[in-house]
Design a protein around this nucleic acid. Structure first.
Length: 394
DNA sequence: TCTGGGGTCCTAGGACCC
DNA sequence: TCTGGGGTCCTAGGACCC
């Protein structure tokens, strides 16, 4: 029995929200991303309006390139809090049609509407209703793909952007995909595209002809998976609850720095952010990782698994500093540092030490809770560590 | 063109245990 | 004395996605 899967993808999401909320930005080339600083800025384009795309500007492009392509474009900084609110409104609308909603990013979701037919009609009808509600209630447009599985629905939603609606009837998946470039396959990035092109494979239909065993020998487990997708087969279910596997924060210095004090202060500020989020999610990290990128973009990581899961900066900070110390040599020009918690332990399943030394853990927990409360009430700038005073980057 | 910040998943090698 | 094979956990790196 074929499923009915929808992929809903908001069009130029951040730029569309900015244009909606600031009429003076409408109809103009608009770039949401880092500060271009007159062409010298460091960073990338998050989203470009369709007017800006006509100049060759696109997501993930260096902001300096975007500036060169269209210096008179309007460049605005992202307001992630606002976008997250709008995203929540979109998800609320989707939940009006089914509980089976899987949010995959801030501007994208899958729905399984197989069970909603009697109430809301077939996939095409649900798609039209969703688009109408998003337009009517949020003054935004979405592109929707309808198909028997997630991958085909995802490709379909992208095909007639913006404001698109593409329906792939069951049984036509393979023919629908065949003429498209392999880059459209989920999991084929620049590297795999190049490797496949060397073998003369450029279209999904060509990949679909390669025997599965050959693909597996060639590309491992991923190869077999790619073969299935190329044939239009994808049995992954729509998954409602996706708890995080990792939480992390990183920041790029502008300009690069070799100042150990500045780097360590930045790292500690990132640790504060990380541990606050861990506590908000009610999880603790068994593994802490530090990421380190030099001026030449070479990147390395160090991680360590702790005897006890950690969710406070008292626990994480010394570990992060030690891992950083293993990577940093005096005089090294540093571009980026980051800190991550992985191996997250879910709430209620938190071993262990506190069974043996509850009195030792208590003050730490109470301090963290107090800091959280102050931050909630007065904002992130209200309280900080003595070590960070005067060192926090703007 | 000179590359953000948030993530996911896979691989390969080594330690360690049975 | 030198040795097999399987399983699990850990670390580092890399490809990929939005």
């Amino acid at each position: 029995l074929p499923r009915t899967i929808l992929h809903v993808d908001m069009d130029a999401f951040y730029a569309a929200i900015e244009a909606r909320d600031h009429p003076e930005l409408r109809g103009q080339p608009l770039v949401v991303g880092s500060d271009p600083k007159g062409g010298k800025g460091r960073g990338i384009v998050a989203t470009a309006s369709y007017e800006a795309r006509r100049f060759g500007i696109h997501s993930a492009q260096p902001i300096s390139t975007a500036y060169r392509l269209c210096p008179h474009a309007l460049f605005v900084r992202p307001d992630m809090k606002r976008y997250a609110e709008v995203s929540a409104s979109v998800i609320r609308i989707l939940h009006g049609f089914t509980d089976l909603v899987e949010q995959v990013s801030i501007d994208e979701a899958f729905l399984d509407v197989g069970g909603s037919r009697r109430l809301f009609g077939d996939g095409a009808a649900v798609a039209r209703s969703i688009k109408a509600r998003i337009r009517g209630e949020l003054e935004l447009t979405a592109s929707v793909g309808v198909a028997a599985n997630k991958f085909v629905a995802k490709v379909a939603s992208d095909l007639e952007k913006p404001d698109g609606l593409v329906i792939v009837p069951p049984g036509e998946e393979r023919a629908f995909l065949a003429p498209l470039p392999i880059r459209r396959l989920w999991g084929v990035g620049a590297r795999t595209e190049e490797a496949l092109a060397r073998a003369g494979i450029r279209r999904i239909g060509q990949l679909a002809e390669v025997p599965a065993a050959d693909l597996e020998r060639w590309l491992g487990a991923t190869g077999e998976h790619l073969g299935s997708l190329a044939r239009g087969l994808d049995d992954r279910p729509v998954v409602v609850e996706g708890s995080n596997r990792s939480i992390g924060h990183e920041t790029t210095f502008d300009p690069d720095t070799a100042d150990r004090g500045q780097i360590e202060a930045t790292l500690l500020a990132l640790v504060e952010k990380l541990t606050r989020r861990l506590r908000q999610h009610g999880v603790a990290a068994r593994t802490i990782a530090v990421k380190f990128r030099r001026a030449d973009f070479s990147t390395c990581t160090r991680r360590i698994t702790l005897p006890e899961p950690a969710d406070t900066s008292e626990q994480v900070a010394p570990v992060a500093l030690r891992l950083f110390g293993a990577l940093f040599g005096e005089g090294t020009l540093v571009r980026l540092v980051g800190v991550y918690g992985t191996n997250l332990v879910p709430p209620g399943a938190r071993p262990q030490l506190e069974l043996f030394a509850p009195q030792a853990a208590r003050p730490r927990r109470e301090l963290a809770a107090a800091v959280d409360a102050i931050t909630r009430r007065f904002g992130e700038q209200a309280i900080t560590r003595a070590r960070l005073v005067g060192k926090r980057r703007g």
